[in-house]
């Protein structure tokens, strides 16, 4: 669907199905430099099983127009405005990477809007190497290449994919390159600035699921476990996946989400 929010055209995927705001809504929150496409194998699956899936592209990302937001807190507020704009009053949220930080803010500050929250390959904080933040500003393609390298585990690096004929690494690179210039830098800088994770996690009251990946080099296993320690709730570990678990090991991720939903 396409809507106008804050005078900007915003695209949101509904997983290939019609969307009923009054149903059981699952809202997927993408990470830095990503878009709705990162959740392709989640929202299509759950939409086909009766959930009302909505995966908006944040401004400057994917098929949305506009300029990327600068802080995690502003992004959480944006998702609240988005929910209001499409008439959704409560969601199960699923955040990946930076989307997990946004999810922490959203679930802690707007508990009445969130029934459950799943956090995938994320942490209480995601400090980003200054060199990578600078690279995203000065040579975005090199920053994307570095993130693709770090973001994928062994199966990604040999270009395996559960979708026959597809390459993880190349798909991820093209997905990130299709965002508006500057969006990746804004996301990485926002991650770097965000320090409210522990406070937010302590304030989350809804049921939670944390999915931690054994070969994640961007939000390493120990940081995912620290998030789970702060949140409590359910924990699922996927030992053989890197950071991009939602595309690398979608069946494991979806199985964990389905059990949690």
């Amino acid at each position: 669907m396409k809507i106008i929010l804050h005078n900007t055209e915003i695209f949101a995927s509904t997983g290939g199905r019609s969307f009923d705001a009054a149903g059981s809504v699952v809202m997927f929150i993408h990470g830095s430099g990503q878009s709705h496409l990162g959740f392709m194998l989640q929202h299509r699956s759950f939409a086909n099983r009766g959930w009302q899936c909505i995966t908006p592209d944040m401004p400057g990302h994917g098929l949305s127009k506009g300029t990327a937001l600068k802080t995690v807190e502003l992004m959480a507020d944006w998702y609240v405005d988005f929910m209001q704009a499409i008439g959704v009053t409560k969601v199960t949220l699923v955040g990946h990477s930076m989307g997990g930080l946004i999810g922490l803010e959203l679930a802690s500050r707007y508990p009445h809007l969130v029934s459950k929250a799943a956090f995938i390959s994320t942490a209480l904080a995601i400090p980003v190497n200054d060199a990578l933040v600078d690279l995203a500003a000065t040579k975005e393609s090199a920053a994307i290449a570095a993130m693709m390298d770090w973001g994928h585990g062994p199966s990604g690096h040999i270009h395996e994919h559960t979708m026959p004929g597809t390459s993880h690494m190349q798909y991820g690179s093209r997905l990130m390159a299709s965002n508006a210039p500057g969006s990746l830098h804004a996301g990485l800088a926002a991650c770097n600035k965000y320090t409210n994770g522990p406070t937010a996690a302590a304030a989350v009251t809804c049921s939670t699921l944390t999915i931690v990946c054994g070969q994640d080099r961007m939000t390493p296993r120990k940081t995912g476990l620290a998030l789970h320690g702060a949140l409590g709730g359910e924990l699922v570990e996927i030992p053989h996946s890197g950071h991009m678990s939602i595309t690398e090991q979608p069946l494991d991720v979806n199985k964990a989400l389905q059990a949690f939903f």
Partner: peptide, 16 residues
């Protein structure tokens, strides 16, 4: 066939 496809995509820099 999928192995061949993924290998070709990797070598040519394609998504698929």
């Amino acid at each position: 066939v999928a192995v061949l496809e993924q290998r070709l995509a990797a070598l040519d820099g394609g998504v698929a």
